Simulated assay, not measured.
Amino acid sequence: MRELMVDMFSTLDGYGGGGPRSAPYWGYGTPGLFEWLHAQLAEEHVMLMGATTYRQMSEIVTKGDDPTFSRMAELPKIVFSKTLQPPLTWANTTIIDEPVETAVPALKAEADGLPMRTIGSQSLVRSLFRLGLVDRLRVMVFPMIHGAAGEELLFAELPVLDLNLTGSTAIDDRLVLLDYRVGGD
């Protein structure tokens, strides 16, 4: 059975976007973070995303010169959408227009498939959690509190979840990665 992992970038108070700093990674794009990102992209996996994230990311990677963009193009991608139509501009992308509740269990049941990871796509992530399809959650905690200026609360609409901490890693002197198995022991 294929593993489905959700990666989230979060402020200490649980915000995943916007806020008082609009810079990528809220201005914490450190060598340690980029080393971690490159290591994650080096692992073979399938990226799962929704149509909005696909539109945003495919535009960013075609206009940018980040060294991770060529690797992202190489990796297989699945986008869940009823609105996107082929041909797609981002290489190695497959559109699935079936409901997530039937498509993802079928993908997970493939014995010889690569592990799957979400990229962005908060509404997709919420659906995956609500359906009980997530095996692993990794949260990269950024050392800031957005408080009243916060946007995109990451965990507010998720169901009650039991998490089992399987690891924690200090990425550098600022960032911490928390790695959880979803479900009880």
Rank of each mutant, 00 (worst) to 15 (best):
Q85W: 04
T94E: 14
L33P: 10
E110A: 13
E98W: 07
K77C: 07
S22P: 01
L41W: 07
G147M: 11
T62P: 00
L84G: 08
D66K: 02
L37K: 08
S127K: 11
I60R: 00
K63C: 02
M57D: 02
G32T: 08
L124W: 00
I119A: 11
Q122H: 11
P76A: 13
S121Y: 02
M47R: 10
M49C: 05
Y25G: 10
V104W: 05
V100E: 02
E74P: 03
D112T: 15
E43Y: 07
R55V: 08
A149E: 13
R130W: 00
I95H: 00
V125I: 14
T53H: 02
G27K: 10
P76C: 12
S121A: 10
M140H: 09
A106L: 09
E35W: 08
L128F: 02
P67V: 04
V104A: 05
T53M: 13
R71D: 04
N92I: 12
Q40K: 14
R71Y: 08
D112F: 09
P67N: 04
G27E: 09
D66P: 02
T93A: 11
L48C: 05
T93D: 03
N92A: 10
W26V: 07
V125Q: 01
F69L: 06
P86D: 15
E101M: 07
G64Q: 03
R126G: 01
R138A: 14
V61H: 01
P143I: 15
Y28N: 11
Q122G: 15
S70K: 14
A103S: 13
T62S: 14
T30E: 11
L84M: 10
L84F: 09
P87V: 09
V100G: 03
A23I: 09
I60D: 00
E43H: 13
T93Q: 04
W36P: 04
L131F: 04
P105H: 05
T83M: 11
M144R: 13
I78Q: 00
